[in-house]
């Protein structure tokens, strides 16, 4: 591809006049803790929906194929390796939901 722009000069946005644009990570609510809490709540809702939709897909497919019953899911025990994988995914989940905590100013 043709490199048709100056990456260094255009690293930051260069609008010509107009309304000043907000910077990265603006805080909207008067209290930054509340602001971050709202962000976390929306992120959490997105994560919950991902899981709920996947469960809907899985339950539908499993039932259609007669593979796994609901009782088998309830009694499932992961292996050591499986448990480690689950915990890694759990930690990623926590990061995605709670990353706004880092943006709250100390003062």
């Amino acid at each position: 591809m043709v490199e048709s722009w100056d990456a260094a000069a255009y690293a930051k946005q260069t609008p010509e006049t107009g309304t000043p644009i907000a910077g990265d990570n603006p805080v909207y609510l008067p209290d930054p803790v509340t602001d971050a809490t709202v962000r976390m709540l929306v992120e959490l809702a997105a994560q919950v929906w991902i899981d709920r939709e996947r469960l809907l897909v899985l339950e539908t497919l499993l039932a259609e194929h007669g593979v796994v019953t609901r009782a088998a899911v309830e009694s499932f025990k992961p292996s050591v390796q499986q448990a480690q994988e689950f915990k890694a995914q759990r930690n990623q989940f926590i990061e995605e939901v709670f990353k706004s905590l880092r943006t709250i100013p100390v003062g």
Binding site: T19, P20, A22
Partner: peptide, 15 residues
């Protein structure tokens, strides 16, 4: 429209 300009990267839209 103001919020869109300022907070949604639309600097020229208000003008």
């Amino acid at each position: 429209r103001y919020c869109d300009a300022r907070h949604n990267g639309e600097p020229y839209s208000q003008d």
